[in-house]
């Protein structure tokens, strides 16, 4: 039986680490900011849930500030330009859907894809984070499960009417997540986060969310596999 190699210790202050962190940290900050904007827009479209959605939007802003502090703590300036470009396709798809009133697509992008992406990244980051960032990220990830739950509950309640649009939106957006994961794989590796583990965590949480909404096992597997399509 082969042995597990001892993991090498991470130098959080090395130039290599800080360089990679400038992009990963920016993505996280931008992700939280996008989420804040998305929930505010959703609040306009779903007046019954307005209070809840505004609450979620505020939490995302708090998370953003927490992650800004993580960057400052390591003396890293986040590369926000990179991060905006990184999210641009998902951002554009959300905006186009919102303009057309395709709320189900908006919920899939924000409440399922972005939340799951965040949960996976935070779960994999926590064991390799510096002490300061670990505490902040642990707090954030607990909140993110709540946000995922909001989207799940809404889509579950409207499953029959939402199903067809969810499938289309999944096919359109899930491959973007794979592309995004590939784009940051090298930087994530420098932070001690393996791409395998990120993809796996994403697939587990995303699959669970789809199952909670009402898709059966076979549908979940088929929908998840659509991420593998090359974009």
């Amino acid at each position: 039986m082969p042995q597990l190699e001892a993991s090498s210790t991470i130098d959080f202050h090395s130039e290599v680490y800080k360089d990679a962190y400038s992009r990963i940290n920016a993505i996280v900050i931008e992700g939280e900011l996008e989420a804040n904007g998305n929930y505010k827009q959703l609040a306009e479209s779903l007046p019954d849930d307005q209070a809840e959605l505004i609450k979620l939007a505020k939490m995302e802003l708090r998370h953003m500030k927490g992650f800004q502090a993580c960057g400052k703590n390591l003396n890293v300036s986040p590369d926000m330009e990179f991060a905006q470009k990184f999210f641009s396709e998902l951002h554009n798809n959300f905006q186009a859907a919102w303009q057309d009133g395709r709320i189900i697509t908006c919920l899939l992008i924000q409440s399922l894809i972005i939340e799951t992406f965040a949960i996976a990244a935070y779960n994999i980051y926590i064991p390799v984070a510096d002490d300061f960032a670990r505490k902040i990220t642990e707090g954030v990830v607990k909140d993110e499960y709540q946000h995922l739950n909001y989207g799940e509950q809404w889509l579950k309640a409207n499953f029959e009417s939402a199903k067809a649009e969810l499938e289309v939106a999944n096919r359109q957006n899930l491959p973007l997540v794979w592309k995004m994961l590939n784009q940051v794989a090298t930087d994530a590796e420098v932070l001690g986060m393996e791409k395998d583990a990120l993809v796996e965590d994403f697939m587990i949480t995303y699959g669970e969310a789809l199952a909670n909404i009402g898709f059966n096992n076979r549908e979940v597997m088929r929908l998840s596999a659509q991420g593998l399509a090359v974009v």
């Binding site: 791409k195 395998d196 796996e200 699959g207 597997m221």
Partner: peptide
């Protein structure tokens, strides 16, 4: 599941 049938070891390493 033909999508899964064509995948190599990398895929199985990240399959849920």
């Amino acid at each position: 599941y033909p999508e899964y049938a064509d995948q190599g070891l990398d895929f199985w390493c990240s399959a849920p």
